[in-house]
């Protein structure tokens, strides 16, 4: 397992939105999906997951529906709303801008100064 990275403040919502955008998923699935995609590099504080999910739902970015899980249990599935998709796009773009800016700063050489 690679080293785990700390989450930057404010990135939990972005990760949840992205995870939910890949297909309807329950809360535990969100956790698994993030761990799986990041190859275990990102681990979410599980206590923070549900408040974040409810907040995003309350703000209309995701919506939920009760369904049945793979092992045939009742579970609540989350799906991205239209507003959530728009929000995700905005946040992704802003994240990319941040990454590019950070990368250019961190890869700067004395000649560029």
């Amino acid at each position: 397992m690679p080293d785990q990275a700390d989450l930057l403040p404010g990135t939990l919502d972005l990760l949840i939105l992205k995870s939910v955008s890949l297909g309807a998923v329950h809360g535990y699935g969100v956790l698994l999906r993030i761990e799986q995609i990041s190859d275990g590099a990102l681990e979410i504080q599980q206590g923070a997951l549900y408040p974040a999910l409810y907040r995003l739902e309350h703000n209309g970015l995701i919506e939920s529906e009760w369904g049945t899980s793979d092992n045939n249990r009742r579970a609540k599935f989350y799906r991205l709303t239209r507003a959530g998709r728009r929000q995700l796009g905005d946040r992704e773009a802003s994240w990319q801008r941040l990454v590019e800016a950070m990368t250019s700063v961190l890869t700067a050489t004395p000649q560029q100064v």
Binding site: G27, Y28, Q46, R74, A75, K76
Partner: peptide
Amino acid sequence: DLDDELRFHLDEL
């Protein structure tokens, strides 16, 4: 509902 959801999460974990 919140209880159910947390219980499901705990069982899966």
